[in-house]
Design a protein around this nucleic acid. Sequence first.
DNA 1: TCTATATTTCCATGATTATAGAATTGTCAA
DNA 2: TTGACAATTCTATAATCATGGAAATATAGA
Lengths: 123, 123
Amino acid sequence: MQNMQAITILAALAQESRLAVYRLLIEHAPEGLAASAIAEQLGLPNATLSFHLKELSHAGLVSSRQSGRFIYYAPVIETMDALVGYLTDHCCSQSGGTCAPATRKSAPAKRVAAAGKRRPGSA
Amino acid sequence: MQNMQAITILAALAQESRLAVYRLLIEHAPEGLAASAIAEQLGLPNATLSFHLKELSHAGLVSSRQSGRFIYYAPVIETMDALVGYLTDHCCSQSGGTCAPATRKSAPAKRVAAAGKRRPGSA
DNA sequence: TCTATATTTCCATGATTATAGAATTGTCAA
DNA sequence: TTGACAATTCTATAATCATGGAAATATAGA
């Protein structure tokens, strides 16, 4: 991942409403949620939500698909994966430090299984 | 980690000069670098660098210590660790997705050894 | 078609952030 | 002390970002 792309993604997440939107979408992955449902859940005006969705979309953190009159937004896991990879690859101490997330809180099995995998695309 | 703390850290990293400073400090961990050395390496005016160092410091991403006339800045690995933990814990898909950094590009041994470790402080 | 609903764009406004020169503060060496 | 250097704070300015009402643009059903 390029520096500038990482900055775009970090900036997209570094905002209260947008982080809330993203986390809400994660809870509803992989189907996602309609914009109206997001607006209702988070109490955001339409225009404001639309603005933030565009930011998240531009950063590649969410995708959208139309279904009838609704537009569903879903998180793009690969982007978060790439960001975490970038941070561990470029922003963690070479010598000794931790920065190893290893596994998640409540779904350890899957994570552990993948633990030996080398990150293929990292420069 | 609290949401707002994560946002502070993300915002601190989401800026070209600051990310460059942080990455430079990572290269010089754990001793760090004097402000003047950072300014020279990155070609930043003193006042500008000072502004960004304060942001990084406020986010807990760097620490500083005085040594003679110099102030050395060093990265705080624990903060990056906590951020990566927050992202993997709260911002990665529950069902199936990847978001598992597992190991780093060129220092796999240490990482693999820690791969089985559960993240202790995560809610 | 007409109407209702979903979403986005337009726009103005206010707030925050980034930049960097100049002045200031702090530290050391002689 | 004085002088040299390191770093921060002060200050003004420009640029970017966030907010949300109002208007415009879909989409679907009757």
